[in-house]
């Protein structure tokens, strides 16, 4: 039960981040290497408000703003200059560096944590379940499902898919692709904020965590199938499961090595993603 709880809480924290990465990739074929740093920056922001409700709202709005700024500074000019996606991904890495430096200047470099929203715990099947952890799991899963529904099941998602497929054609039908890019990056920024808020409420947040969050989220998204939002979030669940099981039963010191093995196996056996249809994959 304890292991399941750890898996769910880790997946709950990472799933919004992975969905944000997948959303940006789906529209612009760019991997946002700044996602981990954005989460940490926004986590610091939430911590500075001690995770209060107004602070959370401000952090979410700031997340949208950071996402939009990331797009306008590191993606839009490069797209205009017809830089290939790999180059744009490098530009997002530059944005991550700049944001990390800004974070250190504003918030300092030490680890930060915030008070729990609800204190206390409940006993279930002999295990102590903290209310904060249960809330974090619920919020993480809820937000992820909401984003998946909005961008997979509604007209917004279908229009975004049209932009992803052929921007010129989409424009002929009266769609404004740039607006959808801004929307995707704004939502991705908010998703990073959710991850930062949940992380700072459950444990603590610090600069080096950004790389770990980024790795776990991207590997999860690629493993699941980065072309799909639901597939990406399920990939993160797989990563959280392998990490927790290995830490619990194999060696607690190795977090990332089992994931590398899982990723290589996934790429060998099912390169389009474990949870992704072969027909919609485009990675080889």
């Amino acid at each position: 039960m304890q292991t399941i709880l750890i898996i769910l809480s880790q997946a709950g924290v990472l799933a919004p981040l992975a969905v944000g990465v997948a959303l940006v990739y789906r529209l612009s074929k760019v991997i946002n290497f700044a996602a981990g740093t954005m989460s940490v920056f926004l986590g610091y922001c939430a911590a500075s408000f001690d995770n209060s409700v107004p602070g959370v709202i401000i952090t979410l709005l700031l997340g949208c703003l950071v996402g939009v700024v990331g797009y306008l500074t590191s993606v839009l000019p490069a797209q205009y200059m017809k830089v290939p996606p790999v180059g744009i991904a490098l530009a997002t890495l530059g944005f991550a560096l700049a944001l990390q430096a800004a974070g250190e200047m504003i918030f300092g470099g030490s680890a930060e944590a915030a008070n729990a929203w609800v204190e206390g715990a409940v006993q279930f099947a002999g295990v102590n379940l903290a209310y904060q952890r249960l809330i974090a799991i619920g919020i993480g899963i809820g937000i992820t499902v909401l984003v998946v529904i909005v961008f997979d099941r509604t007209m917004i998602g279908r229009t975004m898919e049209a932009c992803a497929g052929d921007e010129n054609l989409a424009q002929l039908y009266g769609i404004r692709p740039r607006g959808f890019h801004l929307l995707a990056w704004g939502v991705a920024g908010a998703c990073c904020a959710v991850t930062g808020i949940l992380q700072v409420g459950l444990a603590s947040i610090s600069g080096p965590l950004s790389m770990q969050l980024l790795n776990l989220a991207i590997i999860g998204a690629v493993l699941g199938g980065i072309g799909g939002l639901a597939a990406s979030s399920l990939g993160v669940l797989a990563v959280a499961t392998v990490t927790a099981v290995c830490q619990q039963y194999v060696n607690s010191n190795f977090v990332l090595t089992p994931i590398l093995i899982l990723l290589l196996l996934g790429l060998l056996v099912r390169p389009q993603g474990i949870f992704q249809s072969k027909l919609t994959a485009d990675r080889t």
Binding site: K29, I31, P84, P85, V86, A89, M211, N215, I218, I219, V222, N253, F254, V255, L256, T257, I259, L260, L263, L264, L267, L268, P271, D282, R283, T284
Partner: peptide, 28 residues
């Protein structure tokens, strides 16, 4: 060998995962 068929960005992620795993192994 197992990842050479991957497209640029996916190759980057696979190699990044390798780099991170190596750093973990070096540390442990």
């Amino acid at each position: 060998m197992p990842v050479s068929h991957l497209r640029d960005i996916f190759l980057a992620i696979a190699t990044l995962a390798f780099a991170v795993a190596v750093s973990e192994i070096i540390a442990q």
